[in-house]
Design a protein around this nucleic acid. Structure first.
Length: 522
DNA sequence: CGCCATAAATCGGGGAAGACGTT
DNA sequence: CAACGTCTTCCCCGATTTATGGC
């Protein structure tokens, strides 16, 4: 276990000061005069509460501030070589935490660092926002190792681990209670590139592929149940339909001390508005408080069922009042072994990618094929509602791209003028800054024109893609929902280097999929 | 043309928030 | 069936890499 952040041996009071100090640093308050006052005023405004702040009224930040200034100065004066040496030293220190021997195989460990203290923000309107996140100490941490394995040395002298366990039925290497929500846990797992994770990843996709064989029957069955006399059956049918058609998440019940978000089973009456004759308007906050807005045309039977589920209820009432995720999954398990709600998401994401790729890949160069892939990837991301915030610099980036395209168009025009003149045996005109240009023959000019045109086309394409994807996150589906074998096989068939689609960590994560046959289809 | 400083683009880690089985 | 326990999925942001521009 490795400790992040600075000093560990602090009294509780010092600890809190250091924590608040770290937060101030993050928020750039330290560079302004009266940082403490400004920070506290602003933080109160953000949180609308002050329980964290009160304890800070008497804190003196000066010593730690001075310490930090000195550290900053030290770092600034280091030469490149010293910095490199420092980095290597750090890596060397971390090396011993990076690996675990599992079944005799050396596997990479995922997150082996413990988070430093800080303030909890959470996503969306989180009830625990602003709570102080205390430091995790060795005495909070339970370690899971082999019976005969040596117990890892405790990094803080004089302290010791909470517990040592030997449980080979679980995959975690260590865990501790979440300081924000003590009834929850934080775990250390193996890295995504490990054999163990790879194997379960593969099983996930195999299960989703199995759904292919069942999906027609399942769809026929739930369609029949849209009009069932049994209200529970009817709700299960409609919920399954929404999960299948819209790739909604299951929607487990949530506690009052979590942000108020919903999934399929927890949809409220106010989240779904039926618009005759058969449109459903969805509007709700899903996982991570990301808004889901969609208008979809549905079968009349579904439309009527939804109207019925809503009738006589308040906006804040559950639409599916006879349903929860365990009932739903219990039902799905009867239809196919191991079937749960989330399998539909994997299935629909992967089958969409496979379908789009095979349908839309035409000839063209590698860059054009990559654009086809991105389009397919984008469609999946939209189905799964994977969004991202528009980057702060997006509009500036677009402006710059436009400027460059204009500039190139100017160059192109000039080249064409020169070409016309060259054909008549005249020398080129002087460039805009008045300097004479080299006298090129028509062939060379033609070549330059073609090059410039290609450049412009590429930039136009880049521009379109950028604008197109500014609010869509492609990464999430690539990591979690798209069977990598689809991508690998497609790359092999179309001679696209796999590195154009998968970065280094994805290549490592999907090592198990690399030797797939080029003819593989999901 | 190479060097350096800075800015922009991309990557990957991090930790929060889900899903879902078991107790 | 609520609480617990484990593992997957999710977006953000800091770090790293690459591009840009001045000299």
């Amino acid at each position: 276990m490795l400790y992040k952040g600075k000093p560990v041996d602090l009294t509780p009071e010092q600890e809190e000061v250091a924590t608040m100090y770290a937060v101030m640093l993050d928020t750039d308050y330290m560079n302004k005069p009266k940082f403490k006052e400004n920070f506290m005023t602003d933080w109160r405004k953000i949180l609308g509460r002050n329980h964290v702040i009160q304890s800070l009224e008497h804190c003196d930040f000066t010593p730690i501030y001075e310490w930090h200034q000195k550290e900053k100065e030290k770092k600034k004066q280091m030469t490149a070589e010293e910095k490199k040496a420092l980095k290597e030293e750090k890596l060397k220190q971390e090396e011993k935490y990076m690996w675990a021997i599992v079944n005799g195989v050396k596997e990479k460990v995922g997150n082996f660092r413990v988070e430093p203290p800080g303030l909890f923000r959470g996503r969306g309107e989180h009830p625990k926002m602003g709570k102080l996140k205390k430091r995790i100490r060795p005495s909070d941490i339970t370690i899971n190792i082999g019976k005969d394995a040596p117990i890892p040395e405790c990094p803080i002298p004089g302290q010791s681990w909470k517990e040592i366990r030997h449980d080979n039925t679980v995959t975690w290497l260590a865990y501790w209670n979440d300081p924000i929500n003590p009834k929850e846990f934080k775990y250390v797992f193996l890295a995504a590139s490990s054999t163990l994770k790879g194997q379960s990843d593969k099983e996930k996709y195999e299960k989703a592929r199995l759904l292919k064989d069942y999906i027609h029957g399942i769809r026929a069955a739930y369609t029949k149940d849209f009009t069932s006399k049994d209200p529970t059956k009817k709700q299960i049918a409609v919920a399954t339909y929404l999960i299948d058609k819209l790739a909604l998440r299951a929607g487990n019940e949530k506690d009052d001390d979590e942000a108020d978000t919903v999934g399929c089973c927890t949809l409220k009456v106010e989240n779904v508005e039926p618009v005759p004759p058969n449109i459903l308007k969805f509007d709700f906050l899903g996982k991570d408080s990301i808004r889901y807005q969609n208008e979809v045309e549905v079968e009349t039977a579904v439309f009527k069922a939804i109207q019925q589920f809503r009738s006589g209820k308040k906006g804040s009432d559950d639409m599916f009042d006879r349903l929860d995720t365990s009932k739903l999954n219990a039902h799905l398990k009867e239809l196919m072994p191991g079937l749960t709600a989330k399998v539909f998401r994997t299935y629909n994401a992967s089958i969409t990618l496979d379908d789009k790729l095979s349908r839309e890949t035409k000839g063209g160069d590698v860059a054009e094929k990559v654009v086809v892939y991105q389009h397919a990837n984008k469609e999946v991301a939209i189905i799964c509602n994977h969004q991202r915030t528009v980057s702060k610099s997006h509009s500036a980036q677009m402006t710059r791209l436009n400027e460059k395209i204009e500039e190139l168009k100017g160059v192109l025009e000039e080249l064409q003028t020169d070409l016309a003149r060259a054909k008549k045996g005249k020398p080129p005109l002087k460039s805009a800054d008045g300097k004479p240009k080299r006298n090129l023959n028509p062939d060379a000019l033609e070549k330059k024109i073609a090059q410039t045109n290609a450049k412009i086309e590429k930039m136009e394409r880049d521009k379109e893609t950028k604008e197109d994807l500014k609010t869509v996150a492609l990464g999430t589906s690539k990591i979690n929902y798209l069977d990598p074998r689809i991508t690998v096989a497609w790359c092999k068939r179309h001679e696209v280097p796999i590195e154009k689609i998968f970065n280094k960590s994805l290549l490592a994560k999907f090592a198990w999929a690399m030797d797939v046959d080029p003819s593989f289809r999901f």
